[in-house]
Every structure is written in C-alpha cells, then in structure tokens.
C-alpha cells in the first residue's frame, strides 16, 4: 500500500503544474517537452507558457504592423512572430528569436541617418526584390560615408546581450570603399562605445586584396590607415538571406 502511494505521487503532477514549470524554461525547452508525455504535450502548448515567452509589449508591436493576422493560441502567435514582421509603416522589421524568445529589430535604410542620402548626386533610393524593405539606399559615389542608426533600448528585451550589425551588399562594380578601413562603433546608455574598424569588402577577396596592397601600395595604405582609429579591420560575413553583415559591436540591455 505504501509502495503504491509512492509510485502515484509522481504521476499526479497536474497539467497546470507542468505548465507553470515550463513557463520558467525557454521556448526551445517547452517545444522539446511536448514529446515527454501527453500531459506534457498539452501543458507545453498552453497559453500560460507562451504568454511568458512572448515579449511583454507584443500587443503593441503587433498593432504597429500593417498585416492583420489571426491566431488561435499564444504559441501560434509566438511562432508567427519568429518570421520577420514589418512594423512602423514598413520602416522596421521585427522578429522574435525562436529558441530564446528575445526580440530583434532591423532598421530600414529610411530609418537610418545616412549623410547626404537625400542628394541624388551621392545616393539614390531603389526598390530591390531581394530586400525585406520597400526601399534601399544605393551609394553612387561619395567623399564622406557616414551611417548611423538609433533604437530606443526600452524596445529591446531586458537582461540581454545584443549585437548591432550593418547589413549591406557590395556590388561588383564598386571601388574605393575599402581603400581604407571604416570606423565602426556602438554606443549605448551604459556601454562605453569602443570604436574599431572594418573593411567594406567581400571576405573571400580580403586575403588577395591585402596581399596586393602590401605589394604595390604599402606606404599609401599605411598612411590612409593612420587616419582612422586602430581596429581589428574586420570584414563582413555572409548571411543566410544573401546579404552581408558586419558586427559593429555588442552591448548589454539591463
């Protein structure tokens, strides 16, 4: 009799208790837990769990989207928001990171401050099929390249280490962009904003170009390099979506 009770004790963990436990885990752990048992499956699908994983201001974010969509559960909404969603009249793209539930944003070129971008002599605005945004800024030629982006930190997930990236493409015909390193930095409310450098060139051409530069214009390269801060001279890496990205820096959002 005693033995029977011992055994039963474990099995009576009610679904509500399982939901509460799972709401303290991560989206990834909750999805994985569906496979534990039928009780875990219905607990792992419950709104109690996914309400906790959604950003606190998800209703506000969803209301900023032009697209109206229906969802039958909080889990369905969460998974929907893991795909990019255009907000703020198409000027920003929002997405939830699936495994952690953290928020990420992409600012469109229209949401960035690009020096002289309104002067058609230097920049023009175009619509590219491969862009998530309706317009991108295309550089013609310029003697001053300066791009800045701002985001309110309260829009971001708390207690999270964020990375800031510049997403770009470098056309085949481009020249001079990488004749010297560009200064890059991230500044935040509580981060010092250390500056480093990047070469706006394709990673696969980096080694060959560096060798050429050393051979033919070593002195000139050194002279140009001395005009900017010392940095690691990083190069963009390729993203899954066909664009390039450069990490500008990291910051911690409390």
């Amino acid at each position: 009799m005693e033995g029977l009770m011992e055994d039963d004790e474990f099995k009576i963990l009610p679904e509500g208790c399982v939901s509460s436990i799972l709401s303290f885990t991560s989206p990834q752990d909750a999805c994985k837990s569906s496979l534990v048992s039928t009780i875990f499956q219905s607990a792992a699908d419950s709104d109690i769990v996914w309400e906790r994983f959604l950003p606190v201001d998800y209703e506000d974010i969803v209301s900023k989207s032009n697209v109206r969509f229906k969802f039958s559960s909080k889990k369905e909404l969460f998974l929907h928001l893991c795909n990019s969603l255009l907000i703020d009249g198409g000027r920003k793209s929002f997405r939830i990171e699936k495994s952690s539930g953290k928020k990420s944003f992409i600012l469109s070129a229209r949401d960035l401050q690009i020096t002289w971008s309104n002067d058609p002599l230097y920049w023009h605005w175009a619509s590219l099929p491969e862009s998530r945004f309706s317009e991108v800024a295309v550089l013609r030629t310029v003697s001053w390249l300066e791009i800045a982006g701002k985001i309110k930190t309260q829009m971001l997930s708390p207690n999270t280490k964020y990375g800031a990236y510049l997403i770009l493409k470098i056309s085949e015909r481009s020249y001079g962009l990488d004749s010297m390193p560009s200064e890059i930095s991230v500044e935040g409310g509580n981060s010092q904003g250390s500056t480093t450098t990047a070469y706006l060139r394709l990673a696969r051409e980096h080694a060959r170009k560096q060798q050429m530069e050393r051979l033919f214009y070593g002195n000139r390269m050194e002279m140009l390099k001395s005009r900017v801060v010392e940095g690691d001279g990083r190069v963009p890496s390729e993203r899954d979506d066909g664009w390039l990205e450069i990490e500008l820096g990291e910051f911690f959002e409390w």
Partner: peptide
Amino acid sequence: LNQAVADRIENKSVEYVRSFFGIDNDF
C-alpha cells in the same frame, strides 16, 4: 520550485526529462 526545476531540465534531452519526472512515454 518552478524556477529550480526549470533550471534542472534546461537544455536536457526528452529522455532525461522523462526520468527526471518519473514519467513514462505514452505516445
């Protein structure tokens, strides 16, 4: 308690979670 249990099953396999709770697979 929920936080403590959640921490202990974090990033663990399905089989680990089953034995943690003493639950049989009923699928």
